[in-house]
């Protein structure tokens, strides 16, 4: 049996590369680079415009109309989401990296239990949906795309831009980021990403049945009763029992941690209906 591939170093490299890119981009822009600009609300890569879907949806609701350029910029990103799942949160978003780091520090310094309640992730599902709905509804009411204004991915990539390129005092960006940081510190573990961020919530809904996902093969599981899969998961999800919209971001940490080959990432036939294991209390 092959040892499963180590995904985390690769994922960290990608996350760091993205974070670094956004730190360096202001300087590149200042030195005349014009082919690559923007932040995680929207990016311009050469001739291609990219638009973050939650931001785009919020715009559509705020403006009450859809423009062609909007749809065009959305297509590549939605295609990525549909094929690879919500990898934005776990592989791309610098706030995700920051959040993971803060979570680690929180556990170390406050000596919190490293453990997750086994079905906590399922209880968060309504909250996440509610947060997304509130963002979208409010955008429509105040006629302003609040996802763009408030979502952490844009803020965290706009900050270096405003500091190092635009030479403005990042009052707006800074103040909202500070609020998210406080939330990160004082709310339960990783609530900002898991429950409050509208960007992750929407990416989560872009899953199709055949989208890349972690699949569980019960027959290969070494010990279904005590398997610590959800303890590996940065969001505390049990991949053996999760549903399609339960928040998995395809970070593949569980696959990497699985002592057997029962967890595997793959396209194709979904694990639907989900294999419900018995509740495992910790």
């Amino acid at each position: 049996m092959n040892k499963p591939r180590r995904w985390t170093p690769l994922r960290r490299s990608v996350q760091l590369a993205v974070a670094l890119l956004y730190l360096v981009l202001p300087f590149l822009n200042r030195w005349g680079l014009r082919g690559f600009m923007g932040n995680l609300a929207s990016l311009k890569v050469g001739p291609v415009d990219l638009l973050e879907p939650a931001v785009a949806l919020s715009v559509v609701l705020a403006a009450g109309k859809i423009t062609a350029s909007l749809v065009l910029a959305l297509l590549p990103v939605v295609a990525l989401a549909v094929v690879l799942g919500p990898v934005f949160c776990s592989w791309v978003c610098p706030w995700g990296l920051l959040s993971e780091g803060l979570d680690y520090l929180k556990i170390r310094t406050l000596h919190l239990h490293r453990t997750w309640t086994a079905d906590g992730y399922r209880k968060l599902r309504p909250l996440r949906m509610a947060a997304l709905l509130v963002f979208l509804l409010a955008s429509s009411v105040v006629a302003s795309p609040l996802v763009a204004l408030l979502a952490p991915p844009r803020l965290v990539t706009a900050l270096p831009q405003e500091l190092f390129y635009l030479s403005v005092r990042p009052v707006v960006t800074g103040s909202v980021l500070l609020l998210w940081l406080l939330a990160e510190l004082f709310l339960p573990r990783r609530w900002v990403c898991r429950a409050l961020c509208p960007v992750g919530a929407l990416w989560n809904f872009l899953r199709l049945p055949w989208t890349l996902q972690v699949r569980f093969e019960p027959t290969l599981c070494v010990d279904p009763k005590v398997a610590p899969c959800h303890l590996h998961c940065p969001w505390g999800i049990d991949p053996r029992s999760m549903g399609r919209f339960d928040g998995c971001t395809n970070c593949l940490r569980c696959v990497e941690g699985c002592p057997s080959t029962a967890l595997r990432a793959g396209f194709g036939k979904p694990m639907d209906p989900p294999v419900r294991t018995k509740k495992v209390s910790t």
Binding site: G38, A62, R154, L166, S167, V172
Partner: peptide, 30 residues
């Protein structure tokens, strides 16, 4: 309603004319 605060116009401005709006513009900040 259409502006997503991507700062791209601000970045494109060679004269540093464009600035993100502050909180005094309410939800139009940024």
């Amino acid at each position: 309603a259409l502006c997503i605060r991507c700062n791209r116009c601000i970045t494109a401005c060679p004269y540093k004319t464009l600035k993100p709006a502050s909180w005094i513009y309410g939800e139009r900040a940024g």
